[in-house]
Design a protein around this nucleic acid. Structure first.
Lengths: 189, 189, 189, 189
DNA sequence: TATGAATGAGCCTTCATTCAT
DNA sequence: AATGAATGAAGGCTCATTCAT
């Protein structure tokens, strides 16, 4: 009757990893992560058999959080523009509220150590939001370009906007607005 | 009067570094880089005193190449749209022609090891192109948003487009077009 | 609760270090020391975070041993001359018994890598012996010269004598005697 | 008809080596020494085929200087005590005037890289001075102990005194006096 | 399960020496 | 003779992972 793995410790490790990866890149050592999490070096490996596993779980955890934010709140209006705008703002809110996670995410994406299936998982979680955006753009955007606009550009633009806000927090409102306008006008047929 | 530093070797090191950083990230070891460049481990350090120096030079070299491409060719028409389109296409061309350099650049940017002055150097080299874009957008874009459009969005969008093309080379034409349209329409007042 | 640090290994490392430093100087590599101690290269650093730390601990360990020898045995007589002589002989005994430690000590002293607080620690350990010598010289030596005689000359002379014995082991008795006479007569008022 | 070796460069290298060895120990790199001497890295090796050769030459050069100082000046009196005292003071003078050389010498002696024949050479140069001391001690010191007093103790004591002065320059007079007294009284029969 | 000591490959850098110029 | 680029073997230290406790 072995002691069960502690959710608490798992989270502590993940949080510590996020912090250190954001700061130091994926080169952050497992030893440092363990210490920051308040667990022993070896304990980390009972929760994540491999550093790669830890990194992948971290990716999943963060992307889940982001997807959740998207799914959690629905716009009250049925106006297409307002609907996309609502999503856009949730995206920006998330980025502003979680600067560390964003940095971590960037490091992870660039690291080449996130497995294809980890990447795919995100698409699934994002599916519902995606559908809402698609409905909102329907009729006013070239249907052939829809995947490009939604899968490639929407998140890409949001990231750029978040970066800009990170550098210039005082401009948050204006950047959010300008970014959204660019997307909305740019995707019109 | 002794053997002069060899431009050839310097370039070989830089090229090898670009290849390996693109593949392995900035964790690519100096030993591997030296071997790939066909020089002794120690030789790398007579050309670049430090790994950080190597990384910064690499950044500078790549950004210079990009800036040069922008500056080298001028549009024939004076039509503003065509002028920006010309620049946009040079950007995409460069990205498609140098996929390794793009990957390297991303790794370097995210690494936190590029010195501020290296980053600033790029702004200077890009200044002329920037001015041309500014002139082209003048009158049709909100002046207050100009810096955001040019400094933040133009290159950002181009990068997203390049990524999309890298994943889907057959769609090059359509992505290039769609990306440009998004920018051009999106930046209208 | 994990495997405890092993006193045994620590000592093996220290002993190996002493041997190699005596022979090769402080340039002796940590790799060689680890191998000689029968532990992995990395293990050395779990016992001594830094080569400098190893060197300082080594210094402390050796000086402690020496100080202990001084403190451990007390002369039976209260005759001042015999008292100093007793100390002098303990000193020489120690040197003869531990030729490697003496060589190591010399290397360490000359290396410039022993921290001031490591040096000071010895003074403290030596304090009791020092007091005994001071009492023995009292009355027959110039009080103003006392610190010079005890702190500077006593140990210095002993070292010279030990060196001479090391070169000429057969002369041990005579050198010991001659050295002591030199000190005793030389410090008379 | 090749260019002859330049005495000047040789000296510059030797001087630079002395400085750096004093500061850094024999670990001082040939590259640093060459740079400090104002010559190219390779040039050092046309003057000294090997680092060991350089170190041995350095030793010889410094010991020669010291021996020369001893031989150069003769005491005016024929009083034995004054004669030894004169020598003792030359020794101390030299040490105080050349702190760097003393440090260098200590490093070299301890390094184990000075060849036996280099060591022997000094004995020869010192022979004349030695004879003078021997004559001065004759009659008042135990003849059997003469070699110990002169070869071992005289220079050893002088070194200790020099060290003490180095630490406490203001006490120069007193230390010189106390050291000499110790030697003189201590060597009486 | 939790701990942290143990491991040895690998990392960046330095170095004495050689050799093309 | 003088120069300094080229070399590859160390050097000190870090790391992901294993395993005794």
């Amino acid at each position: 009757m072995a002691r069960p793995l502690s959710e608490e410790k798992r989270d502590a490790i993940l949080t510590a990893a996020a912090d250190l990866v954001a700061t130091l890149g994926i080169g952050a050592s497992t030893a440092k992560i363990a210490k920051a999490a308040g667990v022993a070096e070896g304990t980390l490996f009972t929760y994540f058999p491999t550093k790669d596993d830890l990194l992948n779980q971290l990716f999943l955890e963060i992307e889940s959080g982001l997807a959740e934010v998207m799914t959690a709140s629905h716009p009250t209006t049925s106006d297409p523009r307002e609907c996309v705008r609502h999503i856009w703002e949730r995206l920006i809110d998330w980025g502003v509220a979680n600067p560390t996670w964003r940095k971590t995410l960037r490091q992870l994406k660039v690291s080449g150590r996130i497995r294809p299936d980890s990447l795919r998982r995100f698409d699934i979680q994002f599916r519902e939001t995606r559908a809402r955006v698609e409905r909102s753009l329907a009729g006013r955007s070239d249907p052939a370009r829809m995947p490009f606009y939604i899968d490639t550009m929407l998140l890409g633009l949001a990231e750029i906007a978040m970066d800009a806000i990170a550098v210039n927090p005082g401009e948050r409102e204006r950047i959010t607005q300008a970014g959204f306008d660019l997307f909305w006008k740019g995707t019109a047929a």
